[in-house]
Structures are given as C-alpha cells and as structure tokens.
Design a protein around this nucleic acid. Structure first.
Lengths: 325, 325
DNA sequence: TTGTAAGCGTTATCAG
DNA sequence: CTGATAACGCTTACAA
C-alpha cells in the first residue's frame, strides 16, 4: 500500500506538498502538482480513509440505520434518502440494527464515523440514542427528548382512525386489530387510533379481537389463526402493517375464507406488494419516500449549521382497493 | 468528546492501561480495570472508530456494493449477505454505486475502510476493480482477471436458453428479446442464450425484434412500445429481466393486448413482484439469496486465510406461472 | 511555492 | 501489573 510518504520520496518533495497537490489546494505550482499527480497514479495511490477522517473533523458521510436492510418496507425510504444525500455530495452508508446493541448500527452511532445519522429502527432504543453521543440524529419512528435529535413523525393515530372508520362506514362492527410489537411507538399509536375510532362510534372494544404480532408476515399468519381459532369471527380485520396483512391473507385462504366476502381486511404502510396481491389490499399509505428525503434534507441543513424544528409531521392517506366490502 | 486520555487523567493511570482495560486485555488488575471501566461509563466514552481502524490493520467490516440500495432485486441478495456476515461477527455496511467513479462505493473500494468487499453493481467497471487496491473482492455479476478477485457467476446463458426453449416448446416462432444495458455481462449472456436457442431450432433471428432497454421498468415500457409500433408483432417476448417485463405488461395492457392470449411473455430474475402481478409472471429464477450468502461465506474464508477457488457457478431455474401459453 | 512539524485517538512494543 | 513512547497516514498551521 502506497502512502503520501512514498509519493513524496519519489517526487523529491515534502509530504505536505503532496497532500496539497492531491487535495487540489492551490498552493503548489502546476508543474510540481502534475508531477505529483502522475507519480500518484503510477504508484496506484489512494488515500487511507480512516486516517483522513481522524485528522479532519468531518467525514462527509451520512449513515442510515434500518432494522433490516433487506426488508421491503424500507426500499422507498432508502430511495428518498439516497436521492437527497447523493445530490448534496455526501456519501451514504447503510447498516442494520439486527442485533441491537451489538449491531453495526450501534457502532456507527457511537464511533464517530459519520457527520450525521438517520435512524429508522425499532430496536435502537431511546437510551441507545442518548448514549450514542452522535450529534445530529434524525429519528424516523420514535421521539426522544434531546435537543440534538430531530423527529419525523407520521400521524399514525389519525391513519389508524381513518382505517377503522372506513371499516365502520362499511357496516362493520366486529373489527379485530392485529398488533405490531409493543415497543414500537408506531404500533402504539395505531392501536390508539383503532380504539378511538371504535369509541367514537360507541363500539365496545373486544380484548379477544386484539391479537399480537410483530410486523412480520409470519406473525400475521399466527395472529390470524388465533382469531380463527376463537368461535366468534370478526367481520373485518385491521392489520398493524401490510406485511402482517399479507400473512393474514394466506391464513384466511388456507381456511377457505374469501376476502372481502367473508372477512374484510385493511393494512397499513402501502408496501409495493399491496397493489399486486389478490384482492389488492386497501391500506393506509405512509409517505415513505417523503420521510426519507425529508430526513436527509434536514440532516444536511443541520450539518450546514442551519436551525430546524425538532419535530416534523407527515400525513397518511387512505388507499382504497378491494379488500374491504 | 471524551478520549482515553481523559479517562487516564481521571483515573490517574496511563493511557495504555486504559486501552488494555477497555479492550479486555488481561494485563491489568481487576481492581484498576473496574475503576477504569466505571470512569469510562461516567464520561460516556466510546472509541473513535477511524483512529482505531488506522492503528489496527483490520476493520472488522465487510462492505456490500450495489447499484442502488433501493432496488427490489437486491433485497434478497442483501439478506443472504447479511445473515452470514452477522453470524460471523463482522459488520456489514452497504453503499451504492449510483455515480460510478464518484460514488460512495468507489471510495469504500479504495480507501481501505473494510476487510473485504462484495460487489454487485453494473457500473463498477473492471478497471475500477483493478485500480481499487482493495484486497479480497467477491464479484457478483462480472468476471475479472485478477487473483485477488473471486467471481460468482449465475449461468445466465443456460437460463436464457431455458426461457427461449420454453417459448418455442409452446409453439412460438416469433420471439422478441428486450435487452438490458449493453455493458452488462449478464445481459450479454442472456442475449447469447436467446440466440443459441433460436439457432438450435432453426429459427432465424429477426433484428427488428431485438430492442434495447436498461433493466428498468420504464425502459420495458419504451421497448415494448417500440415493438408494438412495428407492423409485425411477435407472439412472445422474452424480457432481459423482470422489471422490464413489468413495464412490458403495462404497455401491452395500454394497447388492450392480453397476456398470454395475445402475446406471451417471460422474464428473468424472479423478483418478488413476479408472483403477484396478474397474470403472474413466468420467469427464470436467479438464486439471489444463495448468491449473497455464498459471497459472504467466501469472503470471510478468504479473510481468515483460507484458499478458495476463484470462480463459482450457480444455476437458474425455470419458474412456470401464467404469462406464457 | 515549498518544507517543518504538530497533532488527530488509538494500539502495541518495550521497559520498568 | 503499569507506564512511556512510537507508530498508523493524513491535514494544516506556521516558517522559510
């Protein structure tokens, strides 16, 4: 591996001159600069990133943390982030938080490897955020009391109310809720919206119709089976997210129940698959791309020293398709 | 930001002692170690990653480079990589190569920020790989003559032959090919497979039925429109990948042509959407998860000093659904 | 225009 | 067991 020292030696100049030449700092004569650049190419030089990061105070990097890099939900969020970050000449690196405190994500949060961080991960807890020391952080699914942290919230409660009201409007009274993980604020708010809508219409909440999942397709199957195992079937099911709704569709199909004739279902998120399944899924759209791009915008503004609010809110939208009747 | 120096001062010990304590090196008495650890916690210490990377020779990181972090195709590959890397206690970071030589990807390739690299990106050229200096590299879509590089290939030609033969078996003689980008080796091989299958059956290749796309949905629409604009419509279309096939479906629908009655179509990749569209898409499955996990396995073996071949081959599989008749 | 030299925060090699 | 101290490769005052 060749270093600026090697180049300096070969060019017969000092390492600072090499550094200036390499970084295009206008302090070195065109002649020596060209010579240095040529030698650098010959020697296949390329700078050692960590050394540079150590010395400079900025890394020019933004890191995006998500639960799971391979999930379908994040794809659009990533796109939003990616577009903005790339436009501003920052580098984007993504990592997952699969193993919580032992995850790559947490290391990136604490090890000062970036100029700012966008976090969209349920298993990065409030304490981890607080403990990180990472300076500008944009949070996409939770809220933390800390003035170095900016939260972008989607009005989950309102979205869940819209979903539930839509079912009620269609004459449903027996409405189940398949919940996401308890530690997800998103899920808590969706549940609240569901309860609120029922209450607004004088419908009593039936605990047996609130079953737990964890936002995965598999848990959607389990939860639906649980619902089916009880003698009294609801006429409509509100799934805490689309992935669980997809699981629910499988489970219902296996029991030869047809959607929406036998049971209506509605989801949350509007993931790509939602419009492809049969019947296509009525759901609450989250503005995923907008979340990503807003997050990136804000982060870059903060890095550039601008002031921004510490809380932004985005709205959901009811997407009517054919899984409710 | 607190450093080991701060801890050393507060604990009244030397920085080396702090370092030993922090890294769990058995050289310091339990008593002082505990004291140091306690102070570290008080001071909210966390190590500076780049400084550590600079000093050590290893980074414990693996970087995954893909064209576009948000693409649907990569999701499963990422999953494969992620599972293996995480199991081996390495950190995975992902970045995109959207801007080629100016991309984050290329920087990660050259700046010695990882112990190894998995590249699955069309716009990272052979020269860039050669120039990178990055040591173990696993290549997922191209082959490069270089003994520090290992290639994993999917038998694209065979897959394309299977696709074309399947169409021929169904009585088609007028078969179009919608091509991916010319610089993609995958695409070149698929095209070859298409030509070969035609030749094997004594069917003459019609240049007017070979139209160009670039693997995006949009280009699938354009290419299909081009095909439609010509007076003589093929009875079947083989799309170089599923995303273009999805575009093709849209274009055909807009022209009130039904699939597969009016025209049969077949894709390549078997992306998630393929089984959800209507009609569901007959296609050639790429072993995406396997590609990712094999890549990660090999990389880690190389890092651990093991010898591996410099070329691995995986097979495709014809997935029969309902877009061909 | 170029060179000297002082760090950046760690880790690792020596001595004590 | 603990402490000096020299790197690692780079950037950047400051001096020449």
């Amino acid at each position: 591996m060749t270093t600026i020292k090697d180049i300096a030696k070969k060019a017969g100049v000092s390492i600072s001159t090499v550094s200036y030449a390499l970084n295009g700092i206008d302090k070195v004569s065109p002649k020596t600069r060209d010579r240095i650049l040529k030698i650098a190419k010959e020697l296949q030089y390329s700078k050692h990133g960590p050394a540079s990061d150590l010395r400079r105070k900025e890394t020019n990097k933004i890191v995006l943390i998500v639960d799971d890099l391979s999930g379908p939900f994040y794809s659009e969020v990533i796109k939003g982030v990616q577009d903005v970050v790339t436009n501003h000449d920052y580098d984007l690196v993504a990592c997952n938080s699969l193993r919580g405190k032992d995850s790559t994500a947490f290391k990136y949060l604490t090890e000062r490897r970036s100029d700012g961080c966008i976090v969209f991960a349920h298993n990065i807890t409030e304490e981890m955020i607080q403990a990180s020391g990472q300076d500008p952080i944009i949070l996409l699914d939770k809220q933390v009391e800390d003035d170095t942290v900016v939260s972008i919230r989607v009005d989950n409660k309102k979205g869940a109310m819209d979903a539930t009201n839509y079912l009620i409007k269609h004459g449903h009274q027996k409405i189940a809720y398949v919940s996401g993980p308890q530690n997800s604020l998103d899920n808590q708010l969706r549940y609240k919206g569901y309860c609120q809508a029922l209450e607004d219409h004088g419908i009593k909440l039936e605990p047996k119709w609130v079953v737990n999942g964890d936002f995965t397709t598999k848990s959607g199957i389990h939860a639906t089976n649980l619902l089916l195992a009880q003698e009294d079937l609801p006429t409509a099911i509100f799934y805490g997210n689309d992935e669980m709704a997809l699981g629910g569709m499988k489970a219902l199909e296996r029991h030869s129940l047809s959607i929406p004739e036998d049971v209506s279902i509605i989801g949350f998120d509007d993931i790509i698959e939602a419009k492809y399944v049969k019947p296509d899924l009525t759901t609450i759209r989250q503005p995923k791309y907008e979340m990503g791009s807003l997050a990136a915008h804000l982060l870059i503004r903060i890095i550039n020293g601008e002031e921004v609010n510490n809380m932004y809110s985005l709205q959901t939208e009811l997407i009517i398709r054919n899984s409710v009747i």
